[in-house]
Amino acid sequence: MSDQRLFAAALLDPDAPCPAGLIAWNGSDPARRFAVYRNNVVVSLIDALADTFPVTLELVGEEFFRAMAGVFVRIAPPGSVLLVEYGAGFPDFIERFEPARSVPYLADVARLERLRVRAFHAADADPISPERIARALANPERLPTLRVTCHPSLSVLRSDYAVASLWAAHQGHGDLAQVDPFVPESALVVRVGLDVQVIALPSGGDALAAGLADGLPLGQAAALALAASEDFDLTAQLAMLLRVGALTALAQPTET
């Protein structure tokens, strides 16, 4: 077995012995010195998760979060040197993590925070110009088959819990004591300029945004949204998507 393989295994396993062949000038136990590396690795990765999931941390408290993150780090160290990608599997881990079962919405709040980081670093794209939309409107009969490209930062999170309100209450928007976590909510995550926004979607709004993001034609996505809710306000939701720059291109599929 290679030296680095042994060293690496011992970094993540607190019960593993200190790797052989390490020495100190004064003959002191090298395990104490090796512990510095062990600690650097685990603490820095827990810190990385704490950076990505600050509301998740607040919900369960720092002690619980860091202990939970420590379990995750040892099971699933980063598979990429790009730490910004680290933690993609953390929400699923939380969902299965028995001691967190008393906070059933924790995993979805973590999913929302992960989508925010993803949105923050997503590619840049300009919103569709009003002129381009005006041109599409000049051929109304072709609007149902129009396909829309969404901003690379856009994603939709559908939850059985009040994810958007829970997250917002931790940013100073609204009173956490008034939030019932067990009310289903959907959230749109999108970067507007340089800021990532979390937008609570009304019933049907999730179907529209997710449908467009999945590449459905405009008419089909709108029909799905209306099927989800009789009260669905298509105009308001399209206006919102345009206002935040969530739509970046229009295309008419070539006639078949």
Partner: peptide, 24 residues
């Protein structure tokens, strides 16, 4: 099949044009 599941062109046109002015 698309016609049966999609919203009418008229409804879409109205919604999109109003949305455009609202967004502005």
């Amino acid at each position: 099949s698309l016609t049966s599941t999609a919203l009418s062109a008229t409804a879409l046109s109205l919604a999109l044009s109003t949305a455009l002015s609202l967004a502005a």
